[in-house]
Nucleic acid binder design. Structure first.
Length: 659
RNA sequence: GGGCUCAUAGCUCAAUUGGAUAGAGCGUCGGUCUACGAAACCGAAGGUUGCAGGUUCAAGUCCUGCUGGGCCCGCCA
């Protein structure tokens, strides 16, 4: 798809070629390589390029002189009359003033492009695996998870629009002590509920923090959801198979039972644990669906250990052990100091001099404990080997900022795996290195209500869940909660801490810009509805876009022209928030244009049919762009807003707007 | 102690990844609806980009050193 920016780049590229041949420029640029930007100040032209700066050094002259010499070639290259004038400004910027024909062409691009306007396609798209959330299935998601979830999901959408082939993945940590703890916690509730009469069970379980059963472990999970899991299990009749009186969880053996590679598991204990994490995953998936988030893959840690994944086909191989063995053989892993019993752990040599500095760890980390059980890190090594084996060009992990210390060792692992695979003669591993993995760290979210912090803690049992937040933030419709939560998370960069205030999130003022943007879209839709009601037809072919002459219309067209560039920048920088800020800017421009139309003869629909049709085209183009941008953030683009009416008790009721 | 990260208007955040005179919203003050939706618009006030150096045509952005906040440094996951 050609856009105004690519056409201007084409003109500039042709000009550099001619200038280079004439000996004026030291090199010629390819179209894609021409830097073009929209100046902050309108007086600096519609578009500008700083290409003379980058060439000045090679030309051994100053940028200003170079630009002066470049001017005639640029004018000559504009064969289609997109440019009205060019000038050299400041220390050597080339400022481009577009002709009416030039800037209105962006409007036609947008209308013609429709839903695809702003989307990019690549002949050989880079393959990306984007892993995010991956919360342990030991409790419901909270707002912090929500931020990572929304960011990851929006990034996937933005990168797809930017021409990448993106798969998303949730890594299920269904192995280890935390899962065993979950199983044990649920088991105690199952025993208590089995001893409770049928009709009293619901009451027993109710509340955020129900009264715990006797002998409940000190470090067990105490949230009300544990009791709910147990109740679900009891309802399924799962308890009849349990040896409820047996001291199974107190046995030293039960720890081993929930770790891979160890025998002696009691089938019933194991069943509780499996049941619990699977139900938690189902609940997590449901909560994510509230935010319109789903994954292309759910990857089970159990499958890496060669354990039955409990869902889907079984994998016989213990990939974790295999990875460790191969790394040890290649010298990337080594035996550590023996404990009192003479047993040695296996460590990964993350401090190796062979690992480039940015990927090097400060400490060697244990991968296999002295008792033979692999650590979480060991599984993660196998997991990332698995990811790379699947042929992805980029691995992107969205992690909580408290995991930042984990990043170097993971990158070091990828470096080591690449080196190992190459030594083994694997051609796919030719370019595996630490920078194949990108990590996006998400800073913490502080949940507030009217400026007062609400405490959260995973173990405390009284945390506020993501599902609760979404429902509380919903004003007009259930969807509005999703839209507001998503937009709030997407209006800031991930690497700064975020205060999420429930009261602010409910507001429909500019505190909470999602409604400002949606209102803009609804207003645009309203204009088109009205035009249609009046029987005014507009088509690109039959419309004279040169009748758009006002400076505000020019600015709107330039914003429309910029949209595909914004998508590309956001995708490449992994910054979905750029889309959100673009939306706010675009809507601000439109609202201003609209309001001025009331007093200054800029009404879209007027007595002048030809002008009306041209302006309707502009409005349609803008609506398309804003709709596409909202879709990219996973926020709905309403054709009309539900009007909020303040009721007597301060409650907010909704009714349909009747335009 | 070592490391990561952040610091921009009173508050919450942007700044086309090194570009021209650092911009929005909230809050404050003052204006605008019997015509396409006032959930909107217009205007005013508000800044030595934490501090000090350095790199170059150009630094909020890059490098060094300070100051201050958050986080990590486990045979947990």
């Amino acid at each position: 798809m050609t856009t105004l920016y690519t056409r201007i780049r084409g003109v500039l590229a042709a000009a550099t070629t001619a200038a280079h041949e004439a000996g004026v420029l030291p090199e010629a640029l390819a179209t894609d390589a021409v830097p073009v930007e929209r100046p902050r100040q309108a007086s600096h032209g519609d578009l500008a390029t700083n290409l003379c700066f980058t060439m000045a050094r090679a030309a051994k002259t100053n940028p200003r002189k170079l630009a002066d010499g470049f001017m005639p070639f640029l004018r000559a290259a504009d064969v289609n009359g997109l440019i009205s004038s060019v000038d050299v400004a400041g220390p050597g910027f080339v400022n481009i003033h577009l002709s009416n024909r030039g800037w209105t062409s962006a409007v036609a691009d947008a209308v013609r492009g429709g839903h695809d306007y702003g989307r990019h396609t690549a002949a050989a798209p880079e393959r990306v695996l984007l892993e995010f959330v991956s919360a342990n299935p030991t409790g419901p998601l909270h707002v912090g998870h929500g931020r990572g979830a929304v960011f990851g999901d929006a990034l996937a959408r933005v990168m797809r629009a930017g021409g990448y082939a993106v798969d998303t993945e949730y890594y299920i940590n269904n192995v280890g002590n935390q899962i065993a703890k979950l199983g044990e916690s649920v088991w105690h509730w199952v025993r208590a509920l089995s001893a409770t009469p049928d009709d009293a069970r619901d009451a027993r379980v109710e509340g955020e923090k129900p009264v715990l059963p006797e002998d409940f472990p000190e470090d067990g999970y105490r949230g009300g959801y544990i009791a709910e899991l147990a109740l679900a299990l009891v309802r399924e009749g799962g308890d009849v198979h349990l040896g409820l009186d047996a001291p199974s969880w107190e046995d030293a053996a039960w720890w081993a039972a929930h770790e891979p590679g160890r025998q002696g598991a009691r089938q019933d204990d194991r069943a509780v644990s499996d049941f619990a994490w699977q139900l938690m995953i189902a609940r997590i998936a449901k909560d994510l669906a509230l935010l319109d988030i789903n994954f292309t893959h759910w990857h089970s840690e159990r499958s890496l250990h060669g354990l039955e994944p409990a869902t889907g086909a079984s994998e016989a191989m213990d990939a974790v052990q295999a990875c460790v063995t191969r790394l040890e053989r290649a010298g990337w892993c080594f035996r550590g100091e023996a404990d009192e019993a003479g047993r040695t752990p296996v460590l990964f040599k993350g401090t190796s001099e062979d690992i480039p500095k940015p990927f090097r760890d400060t400490k060697d980390r244990v991968v296999v404990r002295t008792d033979g059980r692999p650590t979480y890190f060991a599984a993660d090594i196998a997991y990332h080997d698995n990811k790379l084996q699947r042929g992805y060009d980029h691995l992107i992990n969205v992690l909580g900022a408290d995991h930042h210390g984990y990043v170097p060792r993971l990158k070091g692992v990828i470096h080591a795996l690449g080196s190992l695979r190459r030594a083994e003669g694997d051609p796919k591993a030719a370019r595996w290195s630490g920078d194949r993995l990108e990590v996006q760290l998400m800073q913490m979210v502080a949940l507030l209500r009217d400026g007062e912090p609400i405490s959260m803690g995973k173990r405390s049992g009284d945390f506020v869940t993501l599902a609760h937040v979404v429902s509380e933030v919903s004003t007009a419709s259930p969807q509005s909660g999703r839209d507001a939560v998503r937009f709030i998370f997407l209006t800031r960069k991930p690497d700064a801490q975020l205060d999420f205030d429930l009261e602010v999130a409910r507001r429909t003022s500019m505190d909470n810009p999602v409604y400002y943007v949606q209102y803009g879209h609804a207003r645009l839709a309203s204009i088109l509805r009205r035009a249609q009601a009046q029987g005014i037809d507009w088509q690109v072919g039959g419309v004279s876009l040169e009748l758009l002459t006002h400076d505000l219309e020019r600015q709107l067209a330039l914003t429309i022209a910029e949209w595909p560039e914004v998508v590309l920048r956001a995708a490449r920088a992994r910054e979905p928030h750029k889309i959100a800020f673009f939306l706010m800017d675009a809507c601000k421009q439109f609202h201003s244009y609209f309001t001025q139309g009331k007093t200054e003869g800029l009404r879209v629909i007027s007595d002048d049919l030809a002008v009306t049709r041209a302006r309707l085209t502009l409005i349609a183009a803008l609506k398309g762009v804003i709709g596409n941008a909202l879709a990219m953030l996973g926020v709905s683009a309403p054709e009309q807003m539900q009007q909020l009416v303040e009721a007597d008790g301060g409650a907010v009721a909704a009714r349909e707007g009747d335009v």
